[in-house]
């Protein structure tokens, strides 16, 4: 079986861009810390959420990791199945590594910032779920955040991957229809339909969904709702991706 080689290859694909990405993140942290030390005075500064940039980074990685890899696998006698297994393995690995790394960086940034001046940093999920610290010890809380980040990162990457395969499988006409149709539906048609015909049933449903994941306004959010949503998303999207990959052919 070629799963091992296929996984190694796809992991390696992330290697270079990951190094560049973290170099930039580090520079930003250093820059902000220095900035605060020099000009911040004695006021308390805050900054937060480079998880969001990790999310964007991974989404783009997902978008870029299909065609070249697919051709390389075809050239090297590797089935779509092995490529697919290698792909999900490498995504899970990279997302996990990044969620751990981002957590460590968050804690470090916070410690250093506080030590030098009054600069504090909070991660994306620190803000959202800090209330859990009342009942949980800090270590378990960190693990919880890592787990949550891991699933969010994975979901985002396979989302990007799915879009790319979808575009690879579609012919030009379909591509145009989808490229125009999907944004138009989201921004225009669905809201209009919702407003004029359905009496806001769609937006009510959407709000219900958002409240389920992030909690009712004012109430404390449960991190496992988001986790569950991500997990479901991963399974459904990855299932669809497999259906698309299974019949994907060389268009070289």
């Amino acid at each position: 079986m070629n799963i091992k080689a296929a996984t190694k290859y796809q992991l390696n694909d992330y290697n270079k861009s990951l190094r560049v990405y973290y170099l930039v993140i580090l520079l930003v942290i250093i820059f902000l810390t220095l900035l605060d030390t020099i000009w911040g005075g004695n006021g308390d500064g805050t900054y937060n959420g480079f998880e969001s940039s990790s999310i964007i980074f991974l989404f783009i990685c997902g978008l870029n990791s299909f065609k070249t890899t697919f051709l390389m696998m075809l050239q090297n006698g590797t089935s779509r199945k092995s490529m697919f297994i290698g792909n999900i393995t490498s995504i899970l690995t990279v997302s996990f590594a990044m969620s751990v790394l981002d957590r460590i960086l968050s804690l470090l940034a916070n410690i250093i910032g506080n030590a030098i001046g009054g600069l504090s940093y909070s991660g994306l999920f620190d803000l959202l779920y800090s209330h859990r610290l009342e009942n949980l010890n800090s270590f378990v809380f960190q693990l919880e955040i890592i787990l949550l980040t891991w699933m969010v990162y994975t979901a985002v990457t396979i989302g990007g991957y799915f879009i790319t395969i979808l575009y690879y499988r579609m012919n030009t006409a379909l591509k145009v229809i989808v490229s125009v149709g999907v944004p138009a539906s989201i921004l225009f048609i669905i809201p209009l339909l919702d407003y004029m015909v359905l009496d806001g049933k769609i937006s009510a449903l959407r709000n219900k969904f958002i409240y389920f994941i992030f909690g009712e306004p004012g109430a404390n959010a449960n991190p496992y709702s988001l986790l569950l949503a991500c997990l479901l998303g991963i399974i459904i999207v990855q299932g669809l991706s497999w259906l698309l990959i299974k019949r994907a052919v060389d268009k070289n």
Partner: peptide, 9 residues
């Protein structure tokens, strides 16, 4: 879709 066969080619 069989690696074992494809690896021979």
């Amino acid at each position: 879709e069989n690696d074992q066969a494809l690896q021979k080619i």
